[in-house]
C-alpha cells in the first residue's frame, strides 16, 4: 500500500479513441466507423506490471498498437513522463521506439525466417547505433541470450529450428537488447503450452524485478493475469469497465468481470451456467452502458446513461450504475 504511493506515474493515456473504418461486406461502398478503443484513460506507474484482460475483439491489441505508435489515434493523448508522444518529431520517435518495446503473441510471425538468432538480435543494435563494433555487439548478444535462458550456441539457429517457447525467448531477448523502460506484451504466451507459459511468464517477472521495467501485459486469460499482475484492467467493447489492484481481487466486481471469473474452468466445479449470450455487434452498440445487452442486473438507467469509472475504494475503479 505504502509502496504503491511511492511509485511514479510514467505513462498517462487520456481519452484515447480509435475508430477503424470497415465495410460489412466486400461490395459495400460506405465504410462504417467501428469503435475499437473508446475514451480510454489509464495511468501506468514505474515498474508495475499492468494486466489488461477482455474478450476477443474488445480492443486490447489496438490499445497496445496505439501506445507503441503503430496506429494513430483519432483522439486523445499518450504522455510518457509528461511528454505527449503522439506529437513527437521523427528523431524523438526513434528514441521512443527504443524505450518502448513490443512482444507479440506469435513469435514465428514476428521473427524473420531468413535471419539467424544472432542477426535478429544484432539488427536493433545496428539500427539504433548502439554497441559499435562487432565484438561489443557479440558480447551483448551472448549476455542477453543468457539472461533469457538460451545457450550461446543458439546464435546460429534459424527461427524454424526453435520450439515455440525458445522462439518467444528470442523475441524477449530482441526486446530487451535495447534496454527498454517499458514493454507492451500482447498475449505473449497464448500460443504456448501451460508448462512453457509458466517458464516465459517467470522470465518476464524476473526481468521486471531485475531491470525495473514497466509492463502492459495484454491477455484474455484472467486467471493468468491475476497471478502475475500488480494491477488489472478489464476491458469491454473498447472501454475500461474496471481497474483493480491485487488486493481488490477478492472483493465485488463489475458484472462483466464477475461473469469472466465464473466462466473460468477450474477443478472441482462444474461450469456455472452463464446466462449471457454473445457479445454485441460493435457497429450497433446501444446508447448507455456497453454491457447492458448481456448484464443480468440491467436497470432502466443502463440504457440511458453511460456509466463512468468511479472509485469504489482506494485504487479500485468500476464503471457500473450498480455501484
Amino acid at each position: 500500500m505504502i509502496k504503491e504511493l511511492h511509485l511514479k506515474n510514467i505513462l498517462e493515456v487520456k481519452n484515447l479513441t480509435k475508430f477503424y473504418l470497415v465495410k460489412r461486406h466486400p461490395f459495400e461502398l460506405k465504410k462504417r466507423p467501428l469503435p475499437a478503443v473508446v475514451n480510454f484513460s489509464l495511468t501506468l506507474r514505474q515498474g508495475e506490471l499492468f494486466g489488461l484482460v477482455g474478450e476477443s475483439g474488445c480492443g486490447k491489441s489496438t490499445l497496445g498498437k496505439l501506445i507503441l505508435l503503430l496506429e494513430t489515434p483519432d483522439q486523445g493523448e499518450i504522455k510518457w513522463k509528461g511528454q505527449d508522444i503522439t506529437k513527437l518529431s521523427s528523431r524523438e520517435l526513434k528514441a521512443w521506439r527504443r524505450r518502448c518495446q513490443p512482444i507479440f503473441q506469435d513469435p514465428l510471425a514476428s521473427l524473420n525466417p531468413r535471419q539467424t538468432v544472432e542477426q535478429i538480435l544484432e539488427e536493433p543494435l545496428v539500427v539504433h547505433n548502439l554497441f559499435r563494433g562487432k565484438r561489443l555487439r557479440q558480447r551483448k548478444i551472448t549476455r542477453i541470450l543468457q539472461e533469457v535462458g538460451l545457450p550461446a550456441h543458439f546464435k546460429k539457429r534459424y527461427p524454424h529450428e526453435l520450439s515455440g517457447g525458445q522462439r518467444q525467448r528470442v523475441t524477449i531477448a530482441r526486446a530487451l537488447i535495447l534496454e527498454p523502460e517499458f514493454i507492451v506484451a500482447d498475449e505473449p504466451t497464448s500460443a504456448l503450452d501451460v508448462s512453457v507459459q509458466a517458464q516465459i511468464v517467470n522470465l518476464l517477472l524476473d526481468i521486471q524485478k531485475s531491470r525495473n521495467i514497466t509492463y502492459l501485459f495484454i491477455s484474455h486469460d484472467l486467471s493468468l493475469v491475476a497471478h502475475i499482475a500488480d494491477r488489472i484492467g478489464v476491458m469491454y467493447m473498447g472501454q475500461l469497465v474496471e481497474i483493480m489492484a491485487r488486493r481488490h481481487f477478492q472483493t465485488n466486481h463489475h458484472p462483466y468481470t464477475e461473469c469472466l471469473l465464473k466462466a473460468i474452468p477450474s477443478f472441482g466445479k462444474k461450469p456455472l451456467s452463464p446466462v449471457l449470450g454473445e457479445p454485441p455487434n460493435p457497429l450497433k452498440l446501444p446508447p448507455g452502458c456497453p454491457y447492458q445487452t448481456r448484464c443480468p442486473y440491467k436497470k432502466r438507467v443502463c440504457s440511458q446513461e453511460k456509466p463512468a469509472l468511479k472509485q469504489i475504494t482506494g485504487g479500485h475503479l468500476i464503471a457500473c450504475h450498480l455501484f
Partner: peptide
C-alpha cells in the same frame, strides 16, 4: 504433477505476486 502445478488456478490467487511453478525444459 508438473502439468497440474503450472496451471495458474483462479482459486489460488494470493495477495503477494509470485512466480508460477514450472515444469522445466521442453520435450
Amino acid at each position: 504433477q508438473g502439468l497440474l502445478n503450472s496451471i495458474p488456478r483462479i482459486e489460488e490467487i494470493s495477495q503477494e505476486k509470485r512466480r508460477l511453478p514450472v515444469l522445466c525444459g521442453e520435450r
